[in-house]
């Protein structure tokens, strides 16, 4: 018998635990040649803001050792264009759509929650209180437990949709922020967003990013992200979507063992567009080899080294 890959993120039921990470998958339509989006546990789309955002000047990205820095600046067409132009395509697939919402003030978070609440095909909101790039301003919310509580509580009050808080790792104690988000009504937590970093070109003496700082992602952050997930899993009961440098099924399984109920693929989508197909198959194979009936049998089951 095939193992059961389905998991729950609070009220949201997923057929498997593999999601896309916001900002690494656009709004889904570029992926038609690679696989049917219906295979995914859920699609998390690029961050949407109230007004369109033009984004940061170039250069916006730079490759680093086993990773990359990005400072895109939340370029997106705005919530109205998203609903009118992007949602019709996403509704075609048998796959929940999680909309990542970003704002630099609480009013905009409220507006986004209310506006998206009644939109057919939207399955959940992921509240981006952790964008590390200066232009978006969202990180101020995610580094302060009081502000986190306020934003998540305000979104919670304005939507019937499941609310997922996307947490920043750029904090002293991520468990503290996680508790604030859960107390304010978050149904699930996404972590981690990128780590703030920079890159300098010694030859020219210049920063490599126009924004100076960017968010670090890719395999180089995996050990840090894994620890963040484990710490938060110890601190709260809410389900966790774990992410940060996952490149294959083994990486994904490590996050599940650390306590994530689901995982999101980010930077790997740029390198291996078909990664989700391989990760889903690899998780299934892992469970089969161990004769485990359900993926839930490994969630949070990491054991001591000796």
């Amino acid at each position: 018998m095939k193992p059961d890959l389905s998991v729950s993120l609070g009220p949201l039921r997923l057929k498997n635990p593999v999601l896309t990470a916001s900002g690494t998958f656009g709004f889904g339509s570029e992926w038609a040649g690679f696989y049917d989006l219906g295979i995914l546990g859920a699609i998390t789309v690029k961050a949407v803001t109230v007004q369109p955002r033009r984004g940061n000047p170039m250069p916006r990205t730079v490759e680093t050792a086993a990773g990359m820095l990005n400072a895109i600046g939340l370029q997106n067409p705005g919530v109205e264009a998203f609903i009118a132009e992007k949602m019709p395509y996403l509704r075609r697939f048998d796959c929940p759509v999680i909309v990542n919402i970003a704002a630099d003030n609480i009013e905009d978070f409220r507006t986004l929650a209310e506006r998206l609440d009644q939109v057919p095909g939207v399955s959940a909101l992921e509240v981006n209180i952790s964008c590390p790039n200066q232009a978006c301003g969202g990180i101020e919310f995610g580094v302060d437990p009081t502000l986190t509580h306020q934003v998540i509580g305000d979104v919670r009050a304005r939507t019937r949709l499941p609310v997922i808080a996307k947490l920043s790792p750029n904090v002293t104690d991520i468990a503290l922020i996680a508790r604030a988000a859960v107390e304010a009504g978050a149904d699930a937590l996404s972590l981690v967003n990128t780590y703030v970093g920079t890159a300098i070109d010694a030859r020219t003496g210049r920063f490599r990013l126009a924004n100076r700082t960017g968010g670090l992602s890719g395999p180089c952050i995996k050990p840090l992200a894994l620890l963040a997930v484990w710490r938060v899993a110890q601190a709260v009961k809410a389900p966790i979507i774990g992410m940060g440098g996952i490149f294959d099924a083994t990486d994904a399984i490590e996050f599940l063992l650390a306590g994530a109920s689901a995982v999101a693929l980010g930077t790997v989508n740029f390198v291996h567009p078909r990664a989700a197909v391989d990760v889903i198959a690899g998780i299934e194979k892992y469970l089969e080899e161990r004769e485990l009936a359900s993926v839930t049998d490994i969630i949070g089951r990491v054991q001591p080294a000796v």
Partner: peptide
Amino acid sequence: VMPCGTGVCMGCVVKVRDPNEADGFAY
């Protein structure tokens, strides 16, 4: 520089004229 090449990352943008935008350009 093209991180994704497929159109999802927005890391390879160029400036084009757009009269509807502030300063007359879009990425």
